[in-house]
Nucleic acid binder design. Structure first.
Lengths: 351, 351
DNA sequence: CTGTTAGCGCTTTCAA
DNA sequence: TTGAAAGCGCTAACAG
């Protein structure tokens, strides 16, 4: 590598001091520099192909202009993460206009929080966005109260850290009401994950809400628990069906889990939606392609990322966000797995 | 924010100089420090919760320990990118053990190369990995020859930049031979994208190779061109079918494009694989779930990322890689869309 | 209008 | 075995 060109070189070439170079190149306001000197500096910089050194700038600026994006997921989860590209893109777009870059750090859930807290302690980044925080990531709370900039994607129970999340309760309620509106009264549910996850218990609660609101008793025998995976959906559905309980519809709080359930239903030759109505959650890309296309709740993935990025920038600017906990609306996407009339058959409507 | 704790504070507290602090904390070899002093320093650091400042370290080390991952894709492409999570994970795993972090930067294809070259010029990063370089990203070549560390995921025609890519030719050949082995002689093809993309023309060439090798004339009338999207597959298949040409199988060089094609075939009530055998490329997660499950060519997404990360680390260590152009093997995943006998029905085999 | 000077926090010769 | 001092490249008070 050729030796690096510094302000010193530019200054020498232009016959001025390093300060002047800095002033000219940064267009420091209030610093009136003669047009002639100015040009000399600019020319010298161009000829020498001078680029300011980011690290040196950070050193003096006291900030890195880097935001850590911590993905608290196991590699397997990451692989199956249909939203990551959108979320990442959202974050990136939100912060790039303010001069920030994204430091991407995948961390398995079983790794100690220390692994990513180092990012903030050692000042690799100005703040961190944590996607999928674990409920025992308590370091976050103390770090935040000590001034660290932290934004959650998802929620951490019993904390008031700045966060962006999907309206899981509302989304689940919407799904359940759709089923109820279609005339179903015996509705089963399979959660997306164990209820230790806030998102899971929220979806379960939304489901319950809707039933109660419509005077339908919640039957615990119709509830099963998924675990993120396709397999867990297969097992849960098998278990639910084999229990002998009667139901005409199922709300499955994860499309991925629903995939497994649908597989099992196919094996048993149970037709959708004729024999059983199925409603999912997430709207993964597959949802529109399985047979029948799955009615589900669409999550605003890009918005999640954008919201987190935007919130972080505000935090970094010392703005006190009026609303540090952002809840994003989700929308019901009606396809054919519930039996509702759909005029835009996915087989024809290509968008 | 509380004032930052520096080596000075630790030194003061331990009653030693900053130098000693640095020696102790970094375990500098050959520096024999009395066990007592050593402990005093360690204690002081712990009590003060001292963390070395990453930026300051970079400043003196002359390297950032950051690797730029540039995603040269439009936002729409990013959204539909099923491989990104795996690739990112691969890169991250490969470099993290060497102390590197990933700087993630999505850049639309129509943005000037300058937008990401700044990363290397201003030394935000020690090197960049470019996923999906544009054929006119020539700055990369000159930058590389001037010592910049660059690794491509994909290929840049007529250059010998270090790169990691999939064996598109071999993969397409494999797909075509599978079809031929099944007895097909009139085989159509829909490309994944215009042939200005190296990957596309490679897949087309692999397809041709296979036919020629088996003495089957290549019929240009059976070739159509996709454009990354589902819609383009729909149109291409429609066009191919309406042309009146006769064929019993189609090789579609992208599962996404194949999705559109399959939609059209369904509309025309053409059964797979009875009426027409279809083979895809990529093995996107959906491939196993559409009806019938799609036979396709699986790409080593994680390996792509890992390979790029590993290559970058070697470059950074000034190792001259014996093989700067890595070509990763792809594998044929036989499902049911081609009519081959499959003992692991996806409806039963849950993995 | 421009230059001198003092750091940012750390590592690392070189002396003591 | 430890400390003084220089310096990474830049910015920004403060003079001149």
């Amino acid at each position: 590598l050729a030796k690096r060109v510094t302000t010193r070189d530019v200054a020498e070439r232009a016959g001025v001091s390093r300060t002047t170079v800095s002033f000219v190149l940064n267009n420091v306001p209030g610093m009136r520099i003669s047009e002639e000197t100015r040009q000399r500096v600019l020319d010298a910089a161009r000829q020498l192909k001078y680029y300011p050194d980011a690290t040196a700038r950070r050193m003096v600026a006291g900030q890195t202009k880097l935001i850590g994006f911590v993905l608290r997921q196991s590699p397997e989860q990451v692989f199956g993460d249909h939203f990551l590209p959108q979320v990442l893109n959202g974050v990136s777009q939100a912060v790039s206009q303010y001069g920030y870059h994204i430091l991407f750090l995948p961390i398995p859930p079983d790794a100690p929080a220390e692994d990513y807290m180092r990012l903030v302690h050692e000042r690799h980044v100005d703040g961190i966005i944590i996607s999928g925080p674990r409920s025992d990531d308590r370091e976050l709370v103390s770090a935040f109260s000590e001034g660290a900039k932290v934004v959650l994607i998802g929620k951490l129970a019993e904390t008031d850290l700045p966060s962006v999340d999907v309206d899981n309760i509302g989304g689940a309620r919407m799904a359940a009401e759709h089923l109820i509106g279609l005339g179903h009264r015996q509705i089963g549910m399979i959660t997306n994950a164990p209820t230790v996850y806030t998102g899971s218990s929220d979806r379960l609660n939304g489901f319950r809400d809707a039933l109660e609101k419509h005077g339908i008793p919640v039957d615990t025998n119709l509830i099963r628990y998924g675990n993120f995976t396709i397999e867990s959906g297969y097992e849960a559905m098998k278990n639910l069906l084999d229990s002998g309980a009667a139901f005409t519809a199922v709300f499955i709080a994860s499309d991925t889990v629903a995939l497994g359930a649908v597989r099992f239903l196919r094996e048993r030759s149970i037709r959708l939606p004729e024999d059983l109505a199925v409603c999912g959650f997430d709207d993964i890309p597959l949802a529109d392609f399985i047979d029948p296309p799955l009615t589900t709740v669409k999550l605003p993935a890009y918005g999640l990322g954008w919201g987190a990025g935007d919130l972080m920038v505000r935090l970094l600017n010392e703005e006190i966000p009026d609303q540090p906990e952002i809840i994003l609306e989700s929308t019901l996407v009606v396809r054919r797995s519930c039996g509702a009339s759909v005029n835009n058959s996915s087989l024809i409507d290509i968008t």
